[in-house]
C-alpha cells in the first residue's frame, strides 16, 4: 500500500499539472492513524496530504454530487475508488447525477480494508499500521507486531466482497484483483433472521432501531440515495415524523431500505457510517436476495442500464405467495 500511496500522489499531482482537475477526493490522516478521513484536495501543493493505506475505506462516491454541483463546467473531479466506491460511482452515473467525462477515477485493486475496532480488540490498542497479505494481515502497534487471519480483522463488508477492483477507471493503482468472496454465502445473516418467528424478528428490529439516532448518515452516504427531494424530509405529506418512537423508526428504516431496493450496490457504506451500529446491510441484503430470486438477477448489486423495479416481465412470479404465507 505504501507504494500505492506514492503512485496516487503522483497521479493526483499529474492531474493537477494538466490543469483539468479542479478537486481530488481522497483520504487524509485522521485523529488516529487507523482512521483516515476524507479530504478534498484543491491544489497541487496539498497533494502530499493524501494518504492511502489499509484503513482508508470510508465511502467517497457520494461526495461527487456536491463537488459536481460546485465544479466549473469543463473541470473534472478526481476521486480514489476501491471496488465498492467504483460501484457507487457507477450508480451515480446510471442515475445521471454526474457524467463520466467529468470524472477522473483513480482505481485501486483493493485487498480489503482493516476494521480499526476489530484490530483494536485483537491488539489491545488501535494499531498504527497494517499490511494485508494473501491470507493474513500483519498489524503493527506502537510496541509489537501481530499476524492474524483476514477473517478476524477485515471489515465485514470486505469479507463478502465480490468486486475488489472498480469496473471503470482512468488509472489503476496496483494490480487488478480478481477475487470471489472470502466468506462464501453473503446472505448468511439474512437467512438466519428469516428462520426465526415473526415475533422474534420484530423484537430484533425494535432492539436495533431503538439505537437509531436518526442522523441520516446512512442516507447521506448512500450513492443510490440521490433524490433532490427526499420523501423522508417532505413536510406535506409528512411521511416521517421527527420523533424517534419505535413506530417512526420502522417507517424510516422501511422507507430508506425500500427506496434503494434494486439499486443498492451493496457497498456497505450505510452500515459503516452508522454511529450506533444498526445492521443496515441486513435490510439491504434481504432486498438484494429477493431481487435476485424473484427477478432472476444473478448479481443484483451491479448497476446497469435498467433497474429491477423500473421494468417488469409478463411472467413475473407473485412473490407474496408460497413461503410468504399467502395461498
Amino acid at each position: 500500500m505504501r507504494q500505492l500511496q506514492k503512485q496516487l500522489r503522483q497521479e493526483a499531482e499529474d492531474a493537477f499539472a494538466d490543469g483539468h482537475v479542479e478537486v481530488f477526493i481522497g483520504y487524509q490522516e485522521g485523529f488516529e492513524r487507523a482512521r483516515p478521513v476524507p479530504v478534498f484536495v484543491r491544489d497541487r501543493e496539498s497533494v502530499q496530504e493524501m494518504v492511502l493505506n489499509e484503513f482508508s475505506g470510508v465511502s467517497l462516491s457520494k461526495y461527487l454530487l456536491r463537488e459536481a454541483e460546485r465544479a466549473q463546467e469543463d473541470a473534472s473531479i478526481g476521486i480514489v475508488a476501491r471496488g465498492c466506491d467504483g460501484l457507487g460511482i457507477e450508480r451515480l452515473l446510471y442515475d445521471q447525477c454526474i457524467s463520466r467525462e467529468q470524472l477522473y477515477i483513480v482505481g485501486v485493486g483493493c485487498p480489503g480494508v482493516v476494521d480499526p475496532e476489530k484490530a483494536a480488540q485483537l491488539c489491545g490498542e488501535i494499531p498504527v499500521a497494517a499490511e494485508v497479505e494473501k491470507q493474513q494481515v500483519v498489524l503493527q502497534t506502537s510496541s509489537e507486531e501481530l499476524t492474524v487471519a483476514k477473517e478476524e480483522v477485515l471489515r465485514d463488508k470486505c469479507l463478502k466482497c465480490d468486486d475488489p477492483t472498480p469496473r471503470i477507471y482512468d488509472a489503476l493503482l496496483g494490480e487488478e484483483i480478481q477475487r470471489g468472496p472470502v466468506r462464501q454465502n453473503r446472505f448468511d445473516g439474512v437467512e438466519q433472521l428469516e428462520a426465526v418467528s415473526d415475533d422474534e424478528r420484530y423484537e430484533f428490529w425494535v432492539r436495533q432501531f431503538d439505537r437509531c439516532l436518526r442522523c441520516f448518515a446512512c442516507r447521506n452516504v448512500c450513492p443510490a440515495c440521490s433524490c433532490v427531494t427526499c420523501s423522508l424530509e417532505e413536510e406535506e405529506p409528512q411521511w416521517l415524523k421527527r420523533s424517534t418512537s419505535s413506530s417512526e423508526q420502522f417507517m424510516f428504516h422501511f422507507t430508506r431500505a425500500y427506496h434503494v431496493a434494486g439499486r443498492c450496490v451493496s457497498c456497505g457504506a450505510c452500515e459503516e457510517v452508522c454511529p450506533v451500529g444498526v445492521p443496515l446491510m441486513l435490510l439491504n441484503e434481504k432486498l438484494l436476495k429477493d431481487v435476485g430470486e424473484l427477478f432472476e438477477e444473478p448479481s443484483p448489486h451491479l448497476p446497469s442500464e435498467t433497474e429491477p423495479l423500473g421494468e417488469f416481465s409478463y411472467d413475473d412470479p407473485e412473490g407474496w405467495r408460497g413461503e410468504a404465507g399467502q395461498s
Binding site: E194, Y258, L283, D290
Partner: peptide, 10 residues
C-alpha cells in the same frame, strides 16, 4: 413481491 417479503422480514 419485494415489499410483502420485506414487511414480513420486519
Amino acid at each position: 413481491s419485494l415489499a410483502k417479503r420485506f414487511i414480513q422480514y420486519m
